[in-house]
Write a protein that binds this DNA or RNA. Structure first.
Lengths: 213, 213
DNA sequence: TAGATTGTTAATCGATTAACAATC
DNA sequence: TAGATTGTTAATCGATTAACAATC
C-alpha cells in the first residue's frame, strides 16, 4: 500500500481509535463495523472508513474490521512496535510525573535519563535515575541512543537546551515548556501547552458572556 | 460587537496570540501590524486579521494593533479577568504538578482543594492543602464555589467521579484521564491525553517508514 | 446467493488565504 | 494628503460527509 501525505487531523484521531480498539479487545470483541464503532466513538462511520483507508484496506466488505488486527495495524502505524528511549529534562513535578508514568513504559517508551540544571542536590533520584546536570547532556546523548527528549523545564531553559539536543541528533522533542521551539528540518516537536489548554477551558466556560459586548 | 459561533480552530489560536503579545509587551513593543506579527508567529497575516475580527475591530487602519490593548482584549475573551476556583482530583505526580504550577495561580486559577481516594494517609498535604477523600467531594462542592475540576486520576476513577462533579454543578472539567467523559449539556470538557500526544510524536518520528509497506 | 459493509468517488461544508476597498 | 494597514469579501484549499458500486 503506497502512502502519501496524511493530514494532521487524521493522525490526531489514530491514538483515539487505538484506545477504543483496546477497550474492545478487553471486552473480547472480535470484529466491529465502522457503523458500530462510529456510535461508540461519536464520529461518523464515513470518517472512520476514510481515515483507515489512508493506510490501506484493513476491513472486509460484509464483515467489518477485525479488532485485534486493526489494533495491531494502528499500533504499527503509530510506531509503537519500536522501543523508544526517552530522556526527561527538567526534574520538577511535571518531569517527575512523566518519569513515573507506567503507561508510557508499557507502550515501549523507556526513560533512560533525567536531567536538570547543574546545581541540583547531588544524589536526588527519580525512579532509580540519578538526576544529571544539563551540562552532561552532550556526552550522554553521544553515548546513548536517545529517541525522544521531553522538556519539562521553564521556557528559557527549553530554548537553551533545544539546540544541544538537535545537534546531538535527537529527532523528536516533547515540549511542555510555554514556548515554541525552533528546530532544524527533520526534527519533530510535539507541544503540550498546559496553560493554553486551561485557557481554552476558561474560554468555553465563559463563551456565553462574549455573545454581545 | 455581536458575536456568533466561533470555530474551535480560532479558539485554539487565541492563547498563542496571547502568549506572543505578552512577549511583545515584555519587550516594550507598543504596536504591531498583522504582517509583523505573522512573521514572528509563523502564520499568515490574513489569518490573524480574520481571527481577531471574529471578536470585533481591535486594530486601526494604517496603524496596526495596539499591543497592550489587544493583549487585554484577548485575555478578556479567554475569560482571564475572572478568578477561577479549581479543585484537583487525583493526588499523584501529575495532580501534584498542577497544584504546584505557579503560572496558573498567576492567571487567576486558584486551587482550593485536592482530593484522592479515601484510603489516603491522613495528613499528607500538597501546597498547604490536606488531601481529602473523594467521599468528601459532594459536601465540598456544595459548600464552595468550584469553577473547574482537574481530573488527574486513572480512567475508572475519572468516570466514576465525573457525575458527582456535574451533579454538584461544576461546569468545566480538565480531563487528564485516558478516557472520554460523558457529561450533560452545558458542561465543558477539555482533554489532555498525554499518551495520545506521545503517540503522535512517535508517529511523526517514524512517518517515513510508513511510506510504502 | 443475498445481505452486509467496505473502499472510494463525488458533494458538501468549513477553514484558510488572497485581494482590495475602506479608513485611519 | 499619501501611505499604511485594517476589515471584509471573494477565491481557494482541505477536510468531512454522503452515496453507492465493489465485494466479501
Amino acid at each position: 500500500m503506497e502512502q502519501r501525505y496524511i493530514s494532521p487531523a487524521v493522525i490526531t484521531r489514530l491514538p483515539r481509535y487505538y484506545r477504543y480498539l483496546n477497550d474492545l479487545m478487553d471486552k473480547g470483541t472480535e470484529r466491529i463495523s465502522s457503523a458500530d464503532l462510529s456510535r461508540i466513538m461519536n464520529v461518523t462511520a464515513s470518517q472512520i472508513r476514510q481515515d483507515l483507508n489512508h493506510f490501506g484496506g484493513f476491513g472486509q466488505q460484509g464483515y467489518g474490521y477485525n479488532v485485534p488486527h486493526l489494533y495491531q495495524e494502528i499500533g504499527r502505524i503509530l510506531g509503537l512496535e519500536h522501543e523508544h528511549a526517552m530522556i526527561i529534562i527538567g526534574a520538577g513535578n511535571l518531569g517527575r510525573a512523566l518519569a513515573n508514568y507506567v503507561n508510557f513504559e508499557r507502550r515501549g517508551f523507556r526513560i533512560i535519563g533525567v536531567f536538570d540544571k547543574t546545581d541540583r542536590p547531588g544524589d536526588e533520584s527519580i525512579r532509580g535515575h540519578r538526576i544529571m546536570g544539563t551540562d552532561k547532556l552532550p556526552e550522554f546523548i553521544s553515548n546513548n541512543r536517545v529517541d525522544i527528549a521531553a522538556l519539562t523545564l521553564p521556557s528559557e531553559g527549553a530554548r537553551k537546551v533545544c539546540p544541544i539536543l538537535t545537534e546531538g541528533g535527537i529527532k523528536a522533542i516533547w515540549n511542555f515548556a510555554h514556548t515554541d521551539l525552533d528546530v532544524p528540518e527533520g526534527v519533530v516537536v510535539e507541544n503540550v501547552h498546559l496553560s493554553e489548554s486551561l485557557m481554552k477551558l476558561s474560554y468555553a466556560l465563559h463563551a456565553d458572556e462574549n455573545r454581545q459586548d
